[in-house]
């Protein structure tokens, strides 16, 4: 570890870490928000399930670098604008989460949903008050995967010059230094662990109703 490099770049590293957090979190939240109605739709209309889940899943196969480079041409943003990264990652999250949401809703016991319908819950009330709360464990388990994958994809944005922890890799490469690269890896790992634990905690808080054995067991460790 090159401590001189570390101490003289401390504030920059902090900046990169914060940028990395934002670039990860905003797409995750927005992607999830968009996946909820789409996933609901796919669940609600079985004929469309294949189309919706299949099409959105297709986006996941587009290489991230291609995304970063092509997006400005498609939507007219500047090439260096971090918004390109945000949009690309939002699409990745969406691609992953549409299936998760649809499958999470499908795992809600049929008679529970049917009872709500027969009691006079409107479709939206059924979704927000019954289906979604019961699907929380499945959806958040999927979100943990999305977050961790987003953290690593964000680093690719260094190649198009958007600053975040990935910039430490390019920096280390051009200076011929191991320290920035190691620092970048460790910080990425740290963020991943912290966010993962936060979502796990959120899931536990939102589902006090689950049997303790299921809550603490391997069942939720995706």
């Amino acid at each position: 570890m090159n401590l001189t490099w570390l101490s003289s770049n401390l504030s920059w590293i902090l900046e990169l870490t914060l940028a990395h957090l934002w670039l990860t979190l905003i797409p995750t939240v927005v992607g999830l928000a968009l996946a909820l109605p789409l996933g609901w739709w796919a669940h609600q209309v079985p004929r469309l399930y294949g189309l919706i889940v299949g099409t959105s899943g297709l986006f996941y196969t587009i290489p991230s670098l291609a995304f970063f480079v092509l997006l400005p041409g498609v939507i007219g943003t500047r090439i260096l604008d971090p918004i390109n990264v945000v949009i690309a990652l939002t699409i990745y999250t969406l691609a992953l989460m549409v299936r998760v949401v649809a499958d999470g809703l499908a795992a809600v016991p049929r008679e529970t949903v049917e009872a709500a319908e027969a009691m006079g819950y409107r479709a939206f009330q059924r979704f927000t008050r019954v289906q979604l709360p019961v699907a929380v464990p499945v959806i958040l388990a999927g979100l943990r995967v999305a977050v961790v994958s987003n953290i690593s994809i964000v680093t690719m944005a260094a190649i198009i010059g958007v600053q975040q922890l990935g910039s430490l890799f390019t920096q280390g490469y051009s200076l011929g230094l191991m320290t920035p690269i190691l620092t970048g890896i460790i910080l990425c790992l740290l963020i991943a662990v912290v966010l993962d634990l936060l979502i796990l905690g959120l899931s536990r808080t939102l589902t006090p109703w689950r049997p303790a054995a299921v809550r603490s067991g391997k069942g939720v460790l995706a």
């Binding site: 008679e111 529970t112 009872a115 027969a118 009691m119 006079g120 589902t207 109703w209």
Partner: peptide, 28 residues
């Protein structure tokens, strides 16, 4: 929806809301 709210409905296996306590199931 108005019609259904005038009619109580009980099914096999009860179809209770798994995420609500007994009290909140009844009061839902």
């Amino acid at each position: 929806v108005e019609l259904r709210r005038r009619i109580g409905y009980v099914i096999q296996n009860a179809g209770l809301f798994p995420h609500r306590t007994v009290l909140d199931n009844v009061g839902a």
